[in-house]
Design a protein around this nucleic acid. Structure first.
Lengths: 114, 114
DNA sequence: TCCCATAGCTAGGATTACTACCTATCCACG
DNA sequence: CGTGGATAGGTAGTAATCCTAGCTATGGGA
């Protein structure tokens, strides 16, 4: 059993959607954006990224199109309308989730302070 | 496929350990502590809680002992020394993780602010 | 009387991210 | 020239996690 495995814990999809928010990117660029945007913490193997993109495409949250740049084929992805809505919703969920976990870990009562 | 499924996303173990930080609790009480401490957000089914406790016990992060209160048998758990160390480490990991995700979702450059 | 809260449990399934592997191009360096 | 690294895409199979669905049992209140 590995120690650092499963580092993304179900939040990969939001992160992928978020990297596409300011315009289309291809898979490898998305991977790099996550690595750089997280200070190197999320340096994901391609075996994590590509299947996830396929999953998002099947769910119609993103759409991809092939192109060729410098002899290398690329698949560029962009957010669909559904994907944008999902991203907004997931952002909210993350906030809630993070607040709840932090509250429990910091031993604070839930912010219901009347 | 369910929408709200998999709500814990790999962070269940830290939360369980955290509820035991201020003293021993039995499984059901742990479940209630999580529910109340999260404002109802983490209302976990027992099929999530009990197997997780067994997992933590196998890993020697907690130890359990049987007792009987009001004719009901209980298994009380408490943190081991290893569990305490793990909790401290996991708290740090959570902070890092949450910071990274938030940075990416908020489109901020990584906190390298000079 | 009957159901709810309390208290414990398991089996099996769905989902997820990972490891390990593969192909191919372009470019820098020796 | 040729080799390795960065770029760019991919798959198969596995481990881990949390969930659903089901089970047993007690005590107390409607």
């Amino acid at each position: 059993m590995k120690a650092e495995a499963q580092a993304l814990k179900g939040h990969l999809d939001v992160l992928l959607l978020a990297t596409l928010e300011d315009g289309p990117r291809h898979g490898y660029a998305i991977k790099e954006a996550l690595r750089e945007g997280s200070g190197g913490r999320f340096d994901l193997p391609t075996g994590t990224v590509y299947p996830a993109l396929h999953r998002l495409e099947r769910a119609r949250l993103i759409t991809g199109s092939w192109s060729t740049v410098d002899g290398r084929r690329r698949r560029s992805y962009r957010l669909t309308a559904k994907g944008s809505r999902q991203l907004a919703a997931d952002r909210g969920s993350w906030q809630e989730f993070a607040t709840a976990v932090t509250a429990l870990l910091e031993h604070r009562p839930w912010p219901a302070t009347p």
